[in-house]
Every structure is written in structure tokens, then in C-alpha cells.
């Protein structure tokens, strides 16, 4: 019994050590954005409990900023639900991509799905997990660490409020740089590049046509349409099973 316990905690420690380095860029980005969000809530007149609990339960950056404005507007739960579904619709794609990777992970799967924000999904989908590291625990720690960074920073920002003066102009770019690197990694690993170009082009055109506030749903629809329409050449070039 003691032996299996020791082996068990060894597995967990190894997974934590493997997962942590992947979350460092996310720490930098979340610390900055989370503080900003906390300060934003503080300035809007909310105690630190609000950003902290909203970061914990909603755990999706862009919607949390929008939700702050909802709290200041008249009560409209149905439109709040609709906005939440529209803003977060991209997560549907993440789930479809993770269907097989999360299979058979037991209770961890529930938390992995709950905590699947853009950054966590990107790491968990692309990370080359060493063969001697438990996949379930690895993804669990990536998810947990990222959520802790976000919740902690949002709470801290809410507590310190406007006491913090930012001398970090441009630090938010680390999120863009991270997604560029992840895009590039995926690009280098894949045999076909049609879908990568579809993602860039469809979203860019959609952004130009519909503007920064309304481009995500048309972009997703266009991606789905193009990926479906070009299924034959994509599947053939990509050697998909």
C-alpha cells in the first residue's frame, strides 16, 4: 500500500514538473491581464470578491470584462446568457478537438473541460508530453496552474485597486506571441497547411468585414464551411485516419 502511494505521488510530482514550464508564458500574460481585470472591477466599484469569484466560475477572460458591464446595467439574464454563448462559442471547436485526448481520464476529465480556456486548450493540445509522464495529470496541472494564475491575479488586482501603477506597457503582447508560437508549432508538425491558411484568412476577412465586435461567429462559420468543403484534399494531404 505504501509502495503504491509512493509510486502514485511520484507520478503526480513528475507530471507537475513536466507541466509547469509550459505555463510560464501564461503566468506572465495572466498576471498582467488578471491584475488589469481586478483593477477594472475595483474602479467600477466592486469588492475583490467579484473579480475573484467571477475568474473562478466563468474563467474566460473576454466574457469576464463583458460581465462587469452587465453587472452595471439593468438586470437582463436572458440576454446575458445569449452573449455568453456567442462570446464563448469558439470553445465548441476545442471540445471537438479534445474528444479523444480526454477519453478515459475519469474525474480529471470534468475539471479539464471546465478549465479549458484558450491558453489551456492550446497547451494541452500541442504539448509534446514525455512518454514517462502521465497525460491526465500533466493536463490537469496545466489547467490548474493556469486557473490559479488567473484567479489569483484578478483577486490581487481587485484588492490593490488603483494603487498599482503599470509600467509594463506592451507586456500583454506575450499572449499574442504565445499563440503565434503555438500556431507555428502546429504548422511545422502537420503535413497539410490548408487548414492553417483557412483559419488565418477566414478570420482576417471576417474581421475586416464585420469589425472587432462581431467577427468571431462569421469567422467560425466560414472555417467550418471551408474545412467541410475541402475535406477531400485536406484529409488526403494530412494523412488523416
Amino acid at each position: 500500500m505504501q509502495q503504491t502511494d509512493a509510486a502514485g505521488s511520484g507520478v503526480i510530482r513528475r507530471a507537475f514538473r513536466a507541466a509547469f514550464p509550459f505555463t510560464i508564458p501564461i503566468f506572465a500574460g495572466f498576471f498582467f491581464l488578471g491584475l488589469t481585470y481586478g483593477v477594472y472591477m475595483h474602479v467600477a466599484g466592486f469588492s475583490f470578491w467579484y473579480p475573484m469569484l467571477m475568474a473562478l466560475t466563468i474563467f474566460g477572460g473576454s466574457l469576464e470584462f463583458i460581465a462587469a458591464n452587465m453587472l452595471l446595467a439593468p438586470f437582463a439574464p436572458l440576454s446575458a446568457l445569449l452573449i455568453a454563448l456567442l462570446v464563448q462559442a469558439r470553445h465548441l471547436f476545442y471540445g471537438i478537438a479534445m474528444l479523444d485526448k480526454f477519453r478515459g481520464l475519469g474525474w480529471k476529465k470534468i475539471y479539464l473541460i471546465f478549465g479549458m480556456c484558450d491558453e489551456t486548450f492550446s497547451i494541452n493540445y500541442t504539448a509534446a508530453i514525455p512518454p514517462n509522464v502521465d497525460r491526465g495529470w500533466f493536463m490537469f496541472f496545466v489547467t490548474l496552474l493556469n486557473q490559479m494564475y488567473w484567479v489569483g491575479s484578478a483577486a490581487l488586482g481587485g484588492m490593490l485597486g488603483s494603487l498599482i501603477s503599470f509600467n509594463t506597457n506592451g507586456l500583454e503582447f506575450c499572449m499574442t506571441a504565445m499563440f503565434v508560437v503555438i500556431f507555428l508549432e502546429q504548422f511545422l508538425q502537420e503535413k497539410q497547411h490548408i487548414t492553417a491558411y483557412i483559419g488565418l484568412a477566414a478570420t482576417a476577412v471576417s474581421l475586416a468585414v464585420f469589425g472587432a465586435d462581431n467577427f468571431m461567429l462569421p469567422a467560425m462559420a466560414a472555417i467550418l464551411l471551408l474545412v467541410t468543403g475541402f475535406k477531400k484534399p485536406i484529409a488526403k494531404a494530412g494523412d488523416f485516419a
Partner: peptide
């Protein structure tokens, strides 16, 4: 759906890069 699971990620990462620049 299996096909989408394989084909979408590259498109999604492209989408996220553009999203960051919105």
C-alpha cells in the same frame, strides 16, 4: 466529427492569432 477534430486545431490557432490582433 473525428475529421473535424483533426482538421480544426490548425485553423483554430490561426483564428486565435488574428483574434489577438483584433
Amino acid at each position: 466529427i473525428k475529421y473535424l477534430g483533426q482538421a480544426l486545431p490548425a485553423a483554430v490557432f490561426g483564428m486565435l492569432v488574428v483574434y489577438c490582433l483584433k
